[in-house]
Design a protein around this nucleic acid. Sequence first.
DNA 1: GAAATAAATGGAATGATTCTAATTTCTGTG
DNA 2: CACAGAAATTAGAATCATTCCATTTATTTC
Lengths: 147, 147
Amino acid sequence: MKLALPETERNRLKHALKSRNRRPTRQRTCVYEVILEKRDHPTADDIHLRVREKLPSISLATIYNCLDTLVECELVKQVHLDRAPTRFCPNRNPHAHFHCRVTGQVYDVSLDDERLSIIEKTLPDGFTADTIELSFIGQGPKSDTIS
Amino acid sequence: MKLALPETERNRLKHALKSRNRRPTRQRTCVYEVILEKRDHPTADDIHLRVREKLPSISLATIYNCLDTLVECELVKQVHLDRAPTRFCPNRNPHAHFHCRVTGQVYDVSLDDERLSIIEKTLPDGFTADTIELSFIGQGPKSDTIS
DNA sequence: GAAATAAATGGAATGATTCTAATTTCTGTG
DNA sequence: CACAGAAATTAGAATCATTCCATTTATTTC
Ligand SMILES: [Mn+2]
Ligand SMILES: [Mn+2]
Ligand SMILES: [Zn+2]
Ligand SMILES: [Zn+2]
């Protein structure tokens, strides 16, 4: 009988959950499983469809719950940052953005041509990008944290 | 009498619009104006509030319409890419993403430590990032475009 | 195995964005 | 200048990903 989830990943999951005091449930295992199965960056809804083939009664809310847990445990990443209203920027030079977790502010971070071209060279042959988005998330300066 | 929108930008707007056969309306001018006024990456709603002080009857739909036009004319950028469902990814190594406009596929693009550290050095003093998101948007390989 | 706690569930609520259909504004031409 | 046609604006409805809530079910602890 072949395990759906390979031993290594099964352990990774178990440990990650235990270390955060979260329970290893059928649902969480299965969600993790389908994400590993096909590395195509599925949406929550895609995942729901796939998981339902194994757990037909799983709800979409649970998919979201499981995903939150897996992200929290750093077992999966979400490709788009926090869903939040789109922001607009008049800076027409190439630049990156810094989102401060503390204040919510968004700063421009200038990007010199040098670095920009290094970043562009990351792309393998056959890929042509017309847009690059680089953003940092963390803590900004003088956050006046009263700590 | 001081013009609300500086001459240079006023011209940029006029030319950009004309070159795409779009009309220079009060609403578009005003939206562009408030975005330039305060470079804080406002949301559509923020912009609506600010523009309403000058055009009290402007609708939110128009704000979105104007923003679409300004983005199309490359006068402003939107900081979050197209609003679309969040995607999830099990790749735990540092990597970038490539979104293909043609097929909608999302690919992982590996990021060596070298490049990663170059990117990190972009941040000015005082900023600490715990997350970096780098994504490319464009056309992927062998897109089988029947052209 | 019962109490206590965490998780799962279905459905309602949210909220950013998009769509629609009606009205208003522009622009080019006569 | 008037007018036809095109483009833009508007209010409100519709979408849709995500979150919230109250209830039920599963897990862990004792
Ligand atoms: Mn989330
Ligand atoms: Mn848009
Ligand atoms: Zn910016
Ligand atoms: Zn990825």
